[in-house]
Structures are given as C-alpha cells and as structure tokens.
Design a protein around this nucleic acid. Structure first.
Length: 156
DNA sequence: GCCAACGTTGGC
DNA sequence: GCCAACGTTGGC
C-alpha cells in the first residue's frame, strides 16, 4: 500500500470537476513527464493519494482520492486534437500512462501549502523540496498520517 | 555526449 | 507579472 500526491490546476481540473465526474472517478491523464509517469506505473489499486491544487490563489491539499484502476495507456497522446497529443506515442508502443482515481473524501478545509511548510515533520516531503515541479509524487506513511491528523480524518 | 537555448512550472 | 528551477531539445 503506497501513498501519493497528485497536483492539478483547479481551473483545468479541480475538486469541483471531480465531484461532478461520473462515479466521482476520473482518468489521471496528460502526464508528460517521465519521472511522474514512472510513479503512475508504480501505483496499485487501493493506493491513496492527496489531491492538490496548484497554480491558484491558495495552493494546498483539498481531498483524498483512491486509485481504482492501475496504469494503462494514456490514449490522449494518440489524439492529434488533444492538447496532450504526442506524435511519438502510438497504440502499439504507448509512451504515456494514466490511472483512474476516485474521490474518497473532500477535506472539510483545505490544508494550505503554507501550513504544510510549517510542520517540521513534513519538511522532507517531495512537494516542499525547493524547485520541485513533479505533478505526481510519493508520500511516506509518516507524512500521510501527519497530514490526516491536520485534516481531522483517519483514512489510511 | 555535451551544453546552450528555450519552454514550462508554480509560488510569490 | 516576475523569476528561479528544472526538463527538453537540438546543434555540434
């Protein structure tokens, strides 16, 4: 059982979009970074992830989601009309992967980036490392519990 | 295989 | 809107 953090821009696809998605489930697609893709491929069904809003007024964690389908080819890469199109990825040799995630619990209140930075126990988080730009990253069990404590939730 | 140039990310 | 940090590209 592993824990993750998924970054997204709320204007593009935020918690409000996820809530309205069929079965509150969505493919996590459009990842075009090898390191992030490799993390996606490591995900197993049942893994949990924080849903993080970036590039917005108040960046932070807004929900907990669960991986409900493990990595499979990201077909948006095959579609010339998609903004995620990648001519080097083909159905025969898919370069990119996606997983499906399902909303487990929206947090009552956002846990802001500032609050995360204030926690000594979290200073090793990948998210908080200077210059970090990964959109998919691992979270340790210790970090997960600490953040759940902050959120007043106990999903582990 | 090096590395400069460029584009993107994302907090502030 | 700024800018630092980083990944990618492409010429050599």
């Amino acid at each position: 059982m592993n824990y993750w953090l998924l970054k997204t821009e709320p204007e593009t696809f935020g918690i409000e979009h996820l809530k309205k998605s069929p079965k509150q489930t969505t493919p996590w697609e459009g990842v075009r970074n090898y390191q992030a893709r490799n993390f996606i491929r490591e995900m197993a069904e049942g893994d949990l992830a924080f849903f993080y809003h970036s590039s917005c007024k108040v960046p932070g964690i807004v929900a907990i989601v669960e991986v409900v389908k493990k990595a499979y080819p990201d077909a948006t890469a095959f579609d010339p009309d998609s903004s995620y199109y990648d001519s080097k990825s083909t159905p025969e040799k898919p370069r990119w992967s996606r997983v499906d995630v399902k909303l487990v619990e929206p947090l009552k209140e956002i846990i802001t980036l500032t609050e995360l930075r204030e926690r000594t126990k979290l200073k090793e988080m990948v998210l908080l490392k200077p210059g970090n730009r990964l959109s998919v990253m691992p979270v340790t069990k210790g970090q997960w519990s600490e953040i759940c404590k902050m959120a007043g939730t106990e999903i582990q």
